[in-house]
Design a protein around this nucleic acid. Structure first.
Length: 359
RNA sequence: AGCCUUGUCGUCUAACGGUAGGACUGGAGACUUUGGAUCUCUAUACCGGGGUUCGAAUCCCUGCGAGGCUA
């Protein structure tokens, strides 16, 4: 079986090579370049060290290695998407889009199609049911990364392998140490990968600029401050408002008038919600419910968190509406709601959190 | 103009006359392959000038600022 292993130089993806060899496979290692400096030099991903480590891994395990670039595709699909979404007042999820469009999209078209399987270092598993492959959660529920894979489709999942999906993180690190992999002690990557050392707000500012607008207290309608553009703030956000007498949380945005509405207190009710409307819902493997009346018991995530929330799913036309058992903080339009079965085993599918005004 | 009240970190708010605390904001770190949230740590102040006291943010005088009252 021909396997392509996507290796980034981090611990997780390094260890998959070891595991694949253990299983008797001889994977071809791919390092995908994505985050490169654009013409203005804003995007800057320190790829050197990553490539060095990946090369070392390839040598150590005697694997073929290819460094490929999906820079333009990344720019086209992920960076543009991010900027466009933010501009519309939404809160994007670049990493999910990267998985869907780049790692398992463009890569497949260019190189992956010559392989039987594509292996990655995600904490996720696959499960075969009725002759079909389903995305299922990792053994290590805390590390589970299926949230980021919620947008992929049946073709993609049936070709994927997650060699470390059944290991706890601690063990992955232990293996790396035991094998003396250079990545053993590396910090887990965090933040949007293409940003490198630039922070998110700087990035947004570079492309969308600044425009001063009002900050209004939702309950009283009083103007209590100014902001530099609604695109710098997301629902549920506390940091960065610069208002005293808080804490203050962003509750609502008026993109037309560039106004941000906030509520005061440690736990303003306005900060929470129990219903989440998902638009453009897509099932990963199969639409297991079809059209249905009433509700389905599910668990779900509205962001990457260790725990799953329980709730009920209702179908209203094309909209899938989640009724959460617990109130959820900071439900932001543009983010994805990923739905799992009630046991939090199978990842069923996902949709984009809709603007409340849109439903 | 006269009278009264008032003046503490960027903001709000504490401190029997004994040497300035808390909250929010800001900053740093932890957590996290999105945005966020959360947790930990941390920075900054007694309006100026005189007195009275062993000792004043706290008492007195005065200057300045703020608010109010007075015809």
């Amino acid at each position: 079986m021909k396997i392509a292993a996507l290796v980034s130089g981090g611990v997780d993806s390094s260890v998959i090579v070891h595991r694949l060899k253990e299983m008797g496979y001889d994977p071809t290692i791919f390092y995908i370049r994505i985050g490169m400096e654009d013409k203005d030099g804003y995007i800057d991903c320190p790829a050197e060290e990553d490539i060095e480590i990946t090369t070392y891994i390839a040598k150590k395990y005697g694997c073929k290695m290819e460094i490929v670039s999906l820079h333009d595709e990344y720019w086209e699909n992920v960076v543009n998407y991010t900027i466009e979404a933010v501009k519309r007042g939404l809160t994007p999820n670049p990493d999910m889009m990267c998985n869907k469009m780049i790692k398992f999209g463009c890569f497949e078209q260019n190189w992956g199609h010559e392989f039987d399987k594509i292996a990655t270092g995600h904490y996720a598993t696959t499960t075969e049911l009725d002759g079909k492959i389903w995305l299922s959660t990792a053994k290590d529920h805390v590390k589970d990364q299926t949230y980021f894979l919620g947008q992929i489709n049946q073709m993609q999942i049936s070709k994927l392998m997650f060699p470390i999906g059944d290991l706890p993180k601690s063990q992955v690190r232990a293996i790396a140490a035991q094998q003396a992999l250079p990545s053993a002690q590396r910090k887990d990557s965090q933040g949007i990968c293409f940003l490198g050392k630039i922070n998110y707000n700087d990035f947004i500012g570079r492309y969308l600029g600044e425009r001063v607008g009002k900050i209004i207290e939702l309950e009283t309608g009083k103007v209590i401050g100014k902001h530099k553009g609604y695109w710098f703030h997301t629902i549920g956000q506390r940091k960065g408002l610069g208002l005293s007498g808080g804490p203050w949380f962003v509750i609502k945005k008026d993109t037309q008038r560039n106004i941000i509405y906030v509520s005061n207190g440690y736990n303003p009710d306005t900060q929470y919600g129990n219903t989440v409307n998902l638009g453009g819902f897509s099932f990963i493997t199969d639409d297991i419910w079809g059209d249905f009346e009433g509700t389905k018991d599910i668990t779900f995530k509205v962001r990457h968190t260790p725990e799953f929330t329980t709730g009920k799913l209702e179908k209203i036309g094309d909209i899938y509406r989640i009724h959460s058992d617990d109130k959820i903080q900071g439900i932001a339009a543009g983010q994805f709601g990923v739905v799992y079965d009630s046991a939090s085993k199978l990842c069923i599918g996902s949709g984009v959190i809709a603007d409340e005004n849109a439903v």
